[in-house]
């Protein structure tokens, strides 16, 4: 029994461990670089800062370009997986025959089971060159590490996320609403758009938030297909870098735990953790209240 209680505290200890290690290291970092420089600085170039005393006023640890890059790629990803996943869920839940559904749903879920490093490889060797060539043929210059390539592949990866969460939300809408709408002479699509989606909106929104949290924390695709240099742009054809890419770059290879460069990775980690946790808590709350509504 004591064993059982001890085991169940492991999950708490893990969380405490995460929070502690992130906060302790970040705290050290913020002793070298002011929090405001980190959160609002427009310039990120940690490579130049070999020792702490070289940083200071240069503002080389401004996280804004990383956040902008992360947001840009996430926005591209969500603008793929959002509509595609939602439409796929609608088709599977409202139009498809049970046979088709039982065949296609697991196939879509394969997409979610593929290791992300595989998507990274695919983005880097297939999608990026394809976009480059496509861009060339219409006279556009596309970076070989464009935000678009990473975002598109990340979007494809999260289609089953959106579709299965939306599917849950849609199938939870009681049939009585479907019948009411059809009984008034709605077509199926009118029923779906005006009644079902409206009723399922909280569930779908919760699902999208969860997907956003997933996309923001995704690492391998961006490490392999997005750029390394911080670039404050909203042009999806250019290379941008993200929070996760920088954490990986800063921490692979040898590290010294007293350099601002290494410690900044923990500050980025803390930022990432806070954002994803917030999204997550919000999403779970929305989904929970929604589920209670239709019980």
């Amino acid at each position: 029994m004591a064993c059982l209680i001890a085991a169940s505290t492991i999950s708490i200890l893990t969380t405490v461990g995460i929070v502690l290690s992130l906060i302790v290291e970040s705290f050290q970092f913020f002793r070298m670089v002011p929090v405001s420089d980190f959160l609002f600085g427009l310039h990120w170039s940690p490579q130049t800062a070999i020792r702490a005393d070289q940083v200071g006023a240069s503002g080389a640890f401004g996280a804004i370009p990383l956040l902008a890059g992360t947001l840009l790629i996430s926005a591209i990803a969500l603008s793929v997986s959002g509509p595609v996943g939602l439409l796929a869920a609608i088709y599977l839940a409202e139009y498809a025959s049970p046979r088709f559904r039982s065949l296609v749903k697991p196939m879509l879920e394969i997409l979610a089971g593929i290791p992300t490093v595989v998507y990274g490889f695919f983005a880097a060797i297939v999608i990026a060159p394809l976009l480059r060539q496509g861009g060339e043929s219409i006279g556009l210059e596309v970076s070989s590490e464009s935000a678009l390539a990473a975002g598109l592949v990340m979007g494809a990866m999260t289609i089953p996320f959106v579709s299965s969460l939306s599917d849950d939300a849609i199938t939870a809408v009681p049939d009585s609403l479907r019948e009411a709408a059809l009984g008034l002479g709605s077509t199926r699509s009118e029923t779906i758009v005006r009644v079902i989606l409206r009723a399922a909106l909280p569930g779908i929104a919760g699902g999208l938030l969860l997907t956003a949290s997933r996309v923001i924390g995704e690492t391998m695709i961006v490490v392999m297909a997005a750029g390394l240099t911080a670039n404050l742009t909203i042009n999806p054809l250019e290379a941008v870098t993200t929070v996760t890419v920088q954490i990986v770059t800063l921490l692979t290879g040898d590290q010294e735990f007293d350099s601002a460069k290494t410690l900044s990775a923990f500050a980025l980690g803390l930022l990432l953790f806070t954002v994803t946790l917030t999204l997550n808590v919000a999403a779970l709350k929305i989904v929970k209240t929604y589920r209670e509504q239709y019980q």
């Binding site: 505290t9 708490i12 290690s21 997933r214 954490i247 980690g269 953790f273 994803t276």
Partner: peptide, 25 residues
């Protein structure tokens, strides 16, 4: 109740954050 909420949130923490935990701890 706190343990439960904690577990479901832990499931959605980005994997790289676990890496940071491993490195620091």
């Amino acid at each position: 109740g706190f343990i439960e909420v904690n577990i479901s949130n832990l499931a959605a923490v980005p994997s790289i954050v676990f890496g940071l935990l491993g490195l620091a701890m």
